[in-house]
Amino acid sequence: MWVALGPVGDMPCLLTLQMECEAERRPLGVFECQLCALTAPYSYVGQQPPGAQSVALLEESYVMRDPFTPNKDRFLILGSRCSVCGRLVCVGPVGKPRAAGAAFPLSPWLGPHDCSFFYSKRFCLPCVRENIDAFPQEIQQDLEKREVPSKRPASQPGSRT
């Protein structure tokens, strides 16, 4: 289980806890996106990830500890169920949030993980496409834009020794 560290003000505690937590933080299972097959171990399912009291999730999410930071309280949302078809999908694409747009140096990772997006609820892309009219125009435009970009250039010419 994931252990909430609670108020740990003392340094030595932190050091030992760091070790102990490793052993205790067993993943609950492996999350696998039913669309793109992205897999990752998750350690929590729900809306209130441990260690982050002031943040709540607006959907039942599969969550892991953020593997890219040493900070134990950081979580990473992997995915959740599509509110139309119930498929378990990852949170990709992580395309540009419209409010922020070009001001943010987000690399566009379109491609294999183009699986769902969130608009007050989680929708997998197949369901969105099927019911595109139900979404506001901004979403529709966004989706169109996303469909257009061509496949990334194949970076694998024939191998030869």
Binding site: Q53, A99, Y119
Partner: peptide, 10 residues
């Protein structure tokens, strides 16, 4: 745009 964020902050 805020509807596209699946988080909330107290």
């Amino acid at each position: 745009p805020r509807y596209r964020i699946n988080l909330s902050v107290l």
